[in-house]
Design a protein around this nucleic acid. Sequence first.
DNA 1: AATCCACACAACCGCCTTGTT
DNA 2: CAACAAGGCGGTTGTGTGGAT
Length: 264
Amino acid sequence: MSSKKGAKYCEDVELRRGPWTLEEDTLLIHYIARHGEGRWNHLARCSGLKRTGKSCRLRWLNYLKPDVKRGNLSLEEQFLILELHSKWGNRWSRIAQYLPGRTDNEIKNYWRTRVQKQARQLNVDSNSSVFRDVVRRYWMPRLLEKMSSAAAAAHPSLVHPNHPALPTPSHHPLQQQLDTTTSSASSFSQPNPSTSYNYHNCSTELPEFMFTDDSLDVLGLATLPAPSSDCIASVDDWAMSGLWSMDELCQVRKQHEYGGEIFG
DNA sequence: AATCCACACAACCGCCTTGTT
DNA sequence: CAACAAGGCGGTTGTGTGGAT
């Protein structure tokens, strides 16, 4: 707590910490329903909650707010996170603006638990250009593949050979964006929280993707074929992990061991 | 059945930015 | 313009839970 009033409040009231109780949640919800969001320190003092304003704000934004989405991230959401993180790095709140209902905290947790785990297994830094390239070359196309498969499963009638209405991975709009962003100057508009990410709104202020064939060559990955579907246990696993199976990780590592020096 | 371990996620902390007086 | 309060952000830690041993 940085404010003096807040500090005074902290001194006067023995503040609670740790997990919120149902009673506290109810109190907070009712107070906000009556008085609205904001003025968090004032809210903390007047609501009867023995919490800091910051704590109240966090609880509301990350958990209690009605439009907060819960449950596993969809394939599309995972793709967006990878895509936007490759542009902006750990700008979680900015990334969250493009995933309606998802919080920066949730995205940050996803990155740490799922993405960084994969980087660890490859013995590379998750923020390194090498790992970004691997993600971009392998992970994101795989997600696209799964998204297309899922769409086909949901609408089998649309995938008649004579009527390829659903995009294949290589023709998926997101893949096309993936294909073009390395060479073309892109432009991004300011995010509109009420809408989903729009791939045709790219801003020139953004860094270009770090994807380079050179760094893949260093890893021996430039010619590595995309992992086969057989390697993936199931679509559900993919939705959960979003990444490679252990077999695929071994394949990537093996490629490196023939001629690279990046992986430890 | 007990213990250990890894994972997911909620919550906290410190710093920085922004708004107000 | 400076000082201060409040809010926001990213990093980190704590804790509950489920699976493995």
